[in-house]
Design a protein around this nucleic acid. Structure first.
Lengths: 120, 120
DNA sequence: TTGACATATGCCGATATCGGCATATATTTA
DNA sequence: TAAATATATGCCGATATCGGCATATGTCAA
């Protein structure tokens, strides 16, 4: 067993650098052909096709056939999934009181139920 | 070869569900002992220790020894790394014109060189 | 010092994934 | 129809990682 549940989710999909490279590229260029991606990244075509396959499975990209080409585009909604996960922790690093804050939080929990100051 | 560069980076570290569970837990509780994490997640202790090891390697958590215990705390700065990566794409999903926008972008590219409308 | 407790580490088998190569499939052009 | 182009797929060996179990290491208490 390698990854517990295979690369069947967004987190695993973006764990691979070539895949992030493809995402970056699509984000910048918009809609691209497999050949264009191959040319841009300098990776072997089968490799690119496979990575696109993974990204497709998790919904990070969508394909549209156009003749003998395949037009790939990014589906940012799926990236939002990850962003949503991270957002929950954003407040932990935004106000950089770090140590001080960490300790404050703990003391807080230990004493009463006053909620931490939120900066929305 | 499994992952191209091993789990030596944050992206790989969070690809594993048990690891995200630990992160979630630490984010909520603040500072925790290995035993506390084991109890909270119901995972075998060696497993938790190993996952903590990975998180430690990539800097997502920090340890502090206290007697026979080990106090683990989250290091949100490293989560910020991921957030920074995602932020670059945020504009792609924030204004939800989705399909309409995607298609517009493509048509735009296909016709002339007018740059896509940016909402900064 | 001995034993209990907390945590880390080493070894194991199973397996998923990667990268590379060859090839199949589909589509356009001649 | 045949060649050429674009993309996907299948097979391969190598290997990293996971989960489980046993055990080593370190620390506190009696």
């Amino acid at each position: 067993m390698a990854r517990s549940a295979a690369a069947a989710d967004v987190f695993n999909a973006i764990a691979e650098p070539p895949r992030r490279a493809i995402i970056d590229l699509l984000a910048r260029k918009g809609v691209l052909t497999v050949g264009a991606i191959v040319a841009a990244l300098g990776l072997p075509q089968p490799s690119v096709s496979k990575h696109l396959g993974v990204l497709r499975e998790v919904g990070l990209v969508a394909v549209e056939r156009q003749g003998q080409h395949r037009l790939y585009r990014l589906r940012p909604e799926e990236l939002k999934t990850m962003h949503d996960w991270l957002i929950a922790y954003e407040h932990l690093w935004t106000h950089q009181l770090d140590r001080v804050k960490q300790r404050a939080e703990r003391l807080q929990r230990e004493s009463e139920g006053r909620r931490p100051t939120r900066y929305l």
